[in-house]
Structure formats: C-alpha cells, structure tokens
Design a binder for these strands. Sequence first.
DNA 1: CAAGTAATCAATCATTAGTTTAAATACTTG
DNA 2: CAAGTATTTAAACTAATGATTGATTACTTG
Lengths: 221, 221
Amino acid sequence: MDNRAFKDQIYEQFGRLGKSLASPKRLEMLDVLCQGPRTVESLAVATSQTLANASQHLKVLRTARLVEAEKQGLHVTYRLAGTEVCDFFLAFRHLAESRLAEIERITRLFLDGKNVLEAVDQATLLKRVRSGEALVLDVRPEQEYRNGHIPGALSVPLAELEQRLAELPRDRQVVAYCRGPYCVMAVEAVEILRRHGHKAARLEIGVPDWRALGLPLESQP
Amino acid sequence: MDNRAFKDQIYEQFGRLGKSLASPKRLEMLDVLCQGPRTVESLAVATSQTLANASQHLKVLRTARLVEAEKQGLHVTYRLAGTEVCDFFLAFRHLAESRLAEIERITRLFLDGKNVLEAVDQATLLKRVRSGEALVLDVRPEQEYRNGHIPGALSVPLAELEQRLAELPRDRQVVAYCRGPYCVMAVEAVEILRRHGHKAARLEIGVPDWRALGLPLESQP
DNA sequence: CAAGTAATCAATCATTAGTTTAAATACTTG
DNA sequence: CAAGTATTTAAACTAATGATTGATTACTTG
C-alpha cells in the first residue's frame, strides 16, 4: 500500500462519518437521540418524516457507528453509540452556530413572532432557583424527564400544560426548558404561561447542554 | 413561520456544515490547513488533486465558513476561519477513530509493511527529551515548522533528510513527527533513519494535537 | 396459526455532488 | 500592454443521495 492509497483509505473513512452528518434529518435525529433512546416510529414522528425514511437514515447513522439498535419485541430502540457522540453533536452544533450567522437570523426571526422575550441563562436560573424566585419546569415528554432532568425541575409535558396550570405558582417566575435551543417546546410553554397570567421565561439550553457544562442532573428509573 | 418550518430551516443550516465535511478530499484539506495557511496550488499538490478540483472544494469550505481566503498578488492563501475549526477537526477525527474500527485496521495494515515499530507518546517523548535520551525532529516543510513546532525540535524536512543525516546524533534516539497520525512523513523519516543505522522512533501525534493537549509550542516569524 | 403491527428492504425517480476538461478572469512583470 | 502564472468558472458527464411507494420480514397476540 503506497502513501496515497493509505491516505485515500483513511480519509474515505473520515468521509463516512462526514457523510452521515450531511443530512438535516439525520442531524435532527441525533439531536433527539441526545435526549435518550427512542423507537423508529417515535423518531419518525418527532422529525416529521415517514417511517421508511427514518429507518433509512438510521441505517446510515448505524453504519457510521453513531447509533446502536436493539430489538425489543416488536420495537427497535435506537440510542447514541456512546456519550462521546452526544458531546460531539454539541460541538458540531456549537461550531455551526459560531460560523453560520444564518442560524441566529432564523432563530431571531422565529422568536420575533412569539411572545417570549429573551432567554434566561443557566447561571441566572441557578441563582433564582436557590433564592426561591423561580421554579424550573421541564416540558419534555415524561420519558425524557425520567431519563435525566435539571435538579428540582417539575415535569409537566407541554401537551398537559394547559390542564395543569393550577399546579404552577403565580407568585414565582416559571422557567421552562426543553430539549435544547432549537426545540420549540419551551417557547410554546412560555407563550401558554404568559397568556394565563404567569410570569414565565425560557431557558435556552437543554439537558444535553446542561450535562456538557458539567452541571448535575437528576434521573428516575 | 411555524415550528416545522423553523426546525427545517435550522437543521438545513446544520446540514450545510455537515455536507462540507462529507468529502474525503475536503477533510484532508482541512487536516493540512490545521498546519497553517496554504495556497490553492500547494493544497492541490498536498492532497493529490487537480487545481480546479481543489479550488472547488475550497469554495465549499468557504461557503460553510470553515476557511477564509486572502488574495496576495497572484496567489490566494487559504486559512482556517478560526482556531475553533482546528479544534473541531481534531474532535471530528477523534470521534471517527473511536467509532470506526476500520481506521485502526487500515493504519495497522499500512505500518505492518514498514520498518517503524510502535510509536512514542507525548509523555514518553517529554521524559526522554528532558533526560537527553532523545532528540525531537520535525520533518514537515520548513514553513510549517516556522509556523509552530514542538519546543527544542530540529527542523529537517523529509526531502532533505537523506542529505543531512550527518547533523543527527547516532548515540541518541531521534523521535520524528509530522502533521499528525495520518501524515506519513514521520513514518518515512524513521525508515530512512533506521536504514542508516540511527535509533529512530515516531511520535504519533502532530502539532495540532500537541497544541490541543495544552502543551507549549515554539514559533518563528 | 392467522391477523396485526413495527421495521426494513427494494425499486424508482429527481436532485445533488464530484471529476474532468477547457475557457475565462485576475494579477504580475518584463 | 503583451506574456505568463494562479485561480476560478463553466459545461458535460457520471456517481451518489434522498424521498416515495409498495412489498417483505420479524415479531406479538388473540
């Protein structure tokens, strides 16, 4: 094997990894999988695509060894192949945010149409929670909450929020969070809360970012 | 803009970054650019492709804001758009190495055909240099050496090595390094040195990895 | 074991990406 | 300003990718 052949083979392997990151839908699926394992169907729904399509994309991710599949009865559960994959995804997202100004533009455009105001950062959140000024609200599906959440957070999935408003205080600020900066559940939660006269704000980051910051998480079996 | 439209636009942007990492040649170019700025032609030669091709790939990388171009007279010099890009590339490479067993297989297969033996790691290198057991040899082109090198390293570009063997000690081990684990210059240097009766070993990592480990570098204007 | 469900596979089509070659552009220098 | 060099662009072709649809497989449960 000569030098060129060696390099070509090596970079072709790197290219395999790169190619698996070259599709918006696959990246979205990785983002969702950072919250924990999911079945094919639930991934397909979460990312608005057909089952067959989701399955094909998962096959690509599996070939690149980014995800692993486990068959449990009728369902196949996919999970990230390791915590490095989630860390890498966050690094990837971070690089994209730092290089592509369009991302900020699109986000701003989207938020401008919402009654959300600016987000709270994790330092402010921690301070307000400690002083009792704020309550943390996890609006993701309950399964994801059980898989790991911000300590002390209350779980009220977005779908149930409107019915369960009575459980939430009106004298304290409610800080909602969800999967991450591009998951819109917290944005919707804040809109609902504000509409009903609650003081509400949004935490921009999600659980994977929280973990990557080295902050502690709570989880329930 | 509804939620789906927002997500689609956001992940499409992430996809732009992913797509730019989806070609082996582009990844190789990024690897080379981690050593410092280069002209189009020199990149084309380093990665064994035509000028037109190199230019097109650079255009893709520039669109993704991973590299920047500066025209100096007749030449266009490309450089990474920031140190985050080099850090990210190393993280990318690291993930690929950890997930894709093929990479190790190909590397082993390649090295088996060479008279190189195992590599020295940076801790061993530092120890041997301090104790005077070893001399560090930078076999990259001189420009890259000037741009930043391991402290105390001697610069002897691979192309000149055979003529300059007299400058190297025979009583101490010579540890050669180059651009990184998939740059073969250090491997070739060790072969030449061994063939001429020198004690020689290879440092597996390159300057970008050395920097990422937080170890100091020396550079010359 | 038949019916039903979750997931994968296979075939097709439209789109996109990469390579090659040739031509065009931008700049320097005699 | 003509000649030469570095780079980019354009056109043509081939290969690869992603979405869609329908068929198939693997498993559970009545």
